[in-house]
């Protein structure tokens, strides 16, 4: 009993000491290293440059098109500031589309060699022989990259807002500001999904190149080929001329459901709803439903409610990917090179 007490006391003292001197928990030491490595890497700098460039490009097109788009009957006029993120003349996609396109690339770039590069450098067995739990490594990789991504996106979002504010002179309303914050958080979540997927591949494949290629292949499949396949399916299952209303609605729901299996579709649905308050539904609407509706924008709460399934879907797929990678990493036998 005495000895147990002594041990407990010692534990408490150790805990105390670790909190009150500069002895951070090993997990945070690892996160710190990950963040540092990312920020200093060429890969990240190149991606940062790319994203900065698209940011400025899309800001330029949206601002130059802003005067033309102000329309007296447009319910979105109240949300002029949001147009900085969504407006385009067709020559260059708007901000949120760009993020939807480049975000996966960023996620993949930060994660594709997370574990296999450590293995190939021979550092993995050295690190796991330190007194840390094994999952710290992969958790730290994920947390570190997530911190980098969130910082980057929020910085970019605020940068666009700030520049827009200076150039147009229109201040955002509180709701607009919140919508943008939610949009940025959603973007981080979306990139986190791709990050997790590439970490999963980095555990499964020994060669970093294989895991990068696989991640990019999945990304390409979802952004290009999946749409083609869906349109084929849509053509095949299209109801005939004399189909009843219920049949057409069912058909629409079916096709939309198929499309929404893809994270990029979930993301674009969610961002469109958040950034364009006039969007009232993501599915088909019948005439009865639209009849008598006032063409006014939805309040933020309603928009959020509308994208809730998308949000849940994204979170679920992210967690699923993480669970898979966690499982396979914990089972993996770590040998030196």
């Amino acid at each position: 009993m005495k000895s147990i007490n002594a041990i407990l006391k010692q534990e408490v003292r150790v805990e105390y000491a670790s909190k009150h001197t500069a002895r951070p928990h090993p997990f945070w030491v690892m996160v710190q290293k990950e963040v540092g490595d990312h920020v200093r890497s060429w890969r990240f700098l190149i991606l940062l440059f790319l994203i900065l460039l698209t940011c400025i490009g899309s800001l330029y097109t949206s601002i130059s098109n802003l005067p033309k788009s102000v329309n007296q009957n447009d319910p979105q006029n109240a949300f002029l500031f949001l147009k900085l993120f969504t407006l385009s003349d067709g020559s260059l996609p708007p901000f949120h589309v760009f993020i939807g396109f480049l975000g996966p690339l960023l996620g993949i770039a930060l994660g594709f060699d997370a574990v296999n590069s450590e293995q190939n450098r021979g550092t993995l067995s050295r690190i796991t022989s330190q007194p840390i739990h094994r999952d710290y490594l992969i958790n730290a990789k994920f947390t570190g990259s997530l911190i980098v991504i969130s910082t980057l996106f929020f910085a970019l979002g605020f940068l666009v807002m700030g520049l827009g504010l200076i150039i147009t002179g229109i201040p955002p309303t509180a709701e607009e500001f919140l919508r943008i914050i939610f949009f940025l958080a959603l973007s981080v979540l979306y990139v986190a999904f791709w990050l997790n997927m590439s970490i999963l591949f980095s555990i499964r494949f020994k060669q970093a190149a294989t895991s990068a290629l696989t991640s990019i292949a999945v990304w390409l499949f979802f952004t290009i080929f999946y749409q083609i396949i869906i349109s084929l399916v849509a053509k095949l299952t299209m109801p005939g001329q004399g189909a009843s209303e219920a049949e057409v609605v069912n058909y629409q729901h079916f096709i939309l459901g198929l499309l929404r299996l893809v994270p990029s579709q979930l993301f674009s649905d969610a961002t469109t709803t958040l950034l364009m308050p006039a969007v009232r539904s993501l599915g088909p609407l019948t005439m009865e439903q639209v009849y008598g509706a006032i063409p006014s924008p939805l309040p933020l709460g309603q928009s959020l409610l509308l994208v809730w399934p998308q949000l849940t879907g994204l979170i679920a797929s992210t967690i699923l990917c993480f669970a898979f990678s966690y499982f396979s990493f914990m089972k993996k036998e770590i040998r030196s090179r």
């Binding site: 450098r121 021979g122 550092t123 067995s125 050295r126 022989s129 330190q130 007194p131 840390i132 739990h133 040998r335 030196s336 090179r337």
Partner: peptide, 19 residues
Amino acid sequence: PVEVKKRVGYLPDDVGFYE
């Protein structure tokens, strides 16, 4: 294992470092 790894230093064959 964590308690053991506190007390044991392990040098794997062909050890690697952050280059």
